[in-house]
């Protein structure tokens, strides 16, 4: 079997998800038996100017230039994988969408801000067709491997559509809410095996929200644990602001 050609690209992001690949350790050797990496700026200097089979794309779209670039990339690959929270749901970069674009540019770039063009943050699928989603900030390696296997076999991979609580209960963690910590687990899509909570952290909602969250029910939860709406909204906005953009687009 000829190894499929795989290339990594990034847009607005911290490149930490790509770093996860380098962190895979021994598993990486098994992966490299299956694919041929033709471009991966973070770990190799070679460039590839021809077509390839799979593009693994990290980062969100934040400039007109990026819009054109992702469109061109899409034309060059058979399969496009949105890789990490920025690519799949807009991620942290989406927080910018809560502000006036000119004001936020001024804050970041100072008086010469006009030289730095920007648009509202968007996930990849707002611009191009995405074949596979690997959520997370950073991505969860066991899921990366799962999606890679699905992509190599040309079979669909469905991100679980239930909450992180499910996997967290299976791991028998003490609920963060019992510890007095506000956790995004109840409304966040599973698939990470409650990685953060298993290690003592809370869920920040980096995998995006379940498709059918119960907003009314969430109020009961907040009441039970005496949490203010603002506190939840802030936590939700950390990764999920772009969701509002999507809702707006749907309405249109």
């Amino acid at each position: 079997m000829k190894k499929p050609k795989v290339a990594f690209f990034d847009f607005a992001c911290c490149e930490g998800c790509q770093l996860q690949i380098a962190n895979m350790g021994e598993l990486l050797l098994d992966v490299l038996h299956l694919i041929e990496v033709v471009e991966f700026r973070e770990v190799m200097s070679e460039k590839w100017d021809k077509d390839f089979d799979i593009a693994i794309v990290e980062g969100s779209i934040t400039t007109e230039h990026a819009v054109e670039r992702i469109k061109k990339l899409r034309e060059r690959c058979k399969v496009l994988i949105a890789y990490g929270a920025c690519a799949t749901i807009g991620g942290i970069n989406g927080m910018k969408n809560n502000f006036d674009l000119d004001k936020i540019r001024q804050t970041v770039y100072g008086k010469d801000y006009k030289y730095f063009a920007t648009i509202k943050t968007q996930p990849l699928d707002a611009i191009v067709k995405v074949d596979y989603y690997i959520n997370g900030c950073p991505v969860y390696i066991p899921e990366v491997v799962k999606v890679l296997k699905a992509a190599l076999a040309g079979l669909p991979y469905a991100v679980p559509d239930y909450s992180v609580c499910v996997e967290c209960k299976l791991a028998e963690n003490v609920c963060m809410y019992e510890k007095g910590v506000t956790c995004m687990g109840p409304i966040t899509r599973a698939g990470c095996n409650s990685w953060c909570i298993n290690n003592g952290n809370l869920c920040y909602g980096c995998r995006g929200m379940v498709s059918n969250p119960n907003q009314n029910g969430a109020k009961d939860v907040m009441e039970k644990y005496h949490i203010s709406v603002d506190a939840i909204k802030n936590k939700m906005d950390m990764y999920n602001t772009c969701r509002e953009l999507k809702d707006e687009q749907k309405k249109r």
């Binding site: 499910v166 209960k169 969250p213 029910g217 009961d220």
Partner: peptide
């Protein structure tokens, strides 16, 4: 229906 957030805690435990 109004209250349940479908976290499935009830069945898992």
């Amino acid at each position: 229906n109004k209250r349940c957030v479908a976290c499935a805690n009830c069945t898992n435990v």
